[in-house]
Design a protein around this nucleic acid. Structure first.
Lengths: 248, 248
DNA sequence: CGGACACTTGAGTATCTTCAACGACCGTGG
DNA sequence: CCACGGTCGTTGAAGATACTCAAGTGTCCG
């Protein structure tokens, strides 16, 4: 086993990579000082569980770096991913003391955690936080609803194409963009995790990725590195309205 | 065609049936007075469209009575319902001026609408509204995620059982409850609308309802009226954790 | 009575899953 | 160094589930 990821003891909010996208985005300098009081960092290695569904959770948090997933599991083991958390995304729910989902680090992960009670108190005093959280939650709700369309109505091939398109857009939104055409990205998920996200089996995921590759929609370099020669063509395969390929 | 549903010109918020559940739930008397200034009622007949996806929307609203649906449609006509709006549920998004989904009245419907701009201004002045909206949005997000599990991983039979269970719970939450066992309810949706909700075809919906009836899980009286002899048995069929049959 | 609408049921088929075997990669330990 | 086991991924064959197409029922309403 690798050494545990280093614990970052402290970091100034001003230098934080997610300063302008996270729940604290609208906070002024004074409010940041208050947040610094109640925050602490936690690191997780790829594969580690952050919390289990039903566990007591005495903090809320922002993803600083890395990727985490939210999953639900049925008694017989069927699993569905219900959220993919990228840097700046928020975890936990003010006003609830137990986790509703399993949270798992799929890459090495650093989270900026706030003790729950002080955070809730601060939300009442500090409208900026609640406002930003509302905005982020509404965005997540939109994303969830788009995902419902995918889960309910898209074919396996369309699901895979959609997933790749979504990852491409999110990478772009995080500023990793090069040009719009001949886009390149790394799949941050195993085939199994993709299957859990898409409501498929891992075999079907594998087959459809192979099919998209054979049809020239994507180019694979290794198992995880993907090049998209023609993004519009990918969007067609995804069944999305081809209009803008824009970020939400 | 029937006469249009009567337009309710005005109603005191104090007498409103959703006073304590809607976005205005936490408002004090003074705040209600301000809301009365910017509110108006709109009525729709069963089947009417409230707004089309992409349409300009200069109001946000609460469902007062009746049921509405949010649906998304793909270019080739495939449809997925992404929200079922019951009394007290909120429609529209502050900060966005176009509808993201089709909103349709499935029963006669009365909505309490707020002009968007004044409502947004008031949200800034009145934390109670934003707080309540955040709470409601988080609840909707949880519901959407539960629905993702259903869409991605449940069988047709489980989907139908889940839908019936959810409607039963929502009826109970709205106070239509009798006893917990030998529960009775009306399906507020056509087979087609159920199919759109569940990510199935209407034929599969019909077949699975028949199957649940033959197996004694439900008793049908007409097409829409359902009796549930044993709610726990229904929950088993739904694949849900059988623990509490509780509201959320 | 006839038509529209919501729903049911049947037969054949497509899609995706299940079960199974196998390949590539990687760190470990003899 | 290489064999070993583990994880991750690919591919094939058979089978189950839900879809498509089609016909038909029941009810409401003009």
């Amino acid at each position: 086993m690798k050494d545990p990821a280093p614990i970052v003891v402290h970091q100034q909010c001003g230098d934080c990579p997610i300063r302008h996208r996270a729940v604290c985005a609208r906070c002024d300098t004074d409010e940041l000082v208050q947040l610094e009081e109640i925050k602490f960092y936690r690191s997780f290695e790829a594969g580690q569980t952050v919390v289990w569904s039903g566990d007591r959770m005495d903090f809320v948090a922002s993803v600083v770096t890395g990727i985490a997933t939210l999953t639900q599991t049925m008694e017989d083991g069927r699993r569905q991913m219900v959220g993919l958390l990228l840097p700046s995304d928020f975890v936990g729910r003010p006003g609830r003391d137990r986790a509703a989902y399993d949270v798992t680090a799929t890459t090495d992960l650093v989270m900026c955690c706030f003790r729950k009670k002080p955070f809730e108190d601060m939300m009442i005093r500090t409208p900026h936080i609640g406002q930003r959280l509302l905005e982020m939650t509404l965005d997540e709700l939109d994303a969830a609803r788009e995902w419902m369309l995918l889960l309910g109505r898209k074919t396996a091939r369309e699901k895979i194409a959609s997933l790749i398109a979504i990852i491409a857009r999110r990478d772009a939104a995080l500023g990793l963009r090069g040009k719009t055409r001949n886009l390149t990205l790394d799949l941050p998920l195993t085939r199994e995790a993709m299957a859990d996200y898409l409501g498929l089996t891992l075999e079907t995921v594998s087959r459809q990725i192979s099919a998209l590759r054979k049809d020239g929609i994507i180019v694979l370099d290794g198992k995880r590195h993907v090049t998209i020669p023609d993004f519009d063509r990918l969007l067609e395969e995804a069944g999305d309205d081809s209009d803008g390929g824009f970020l939400v």
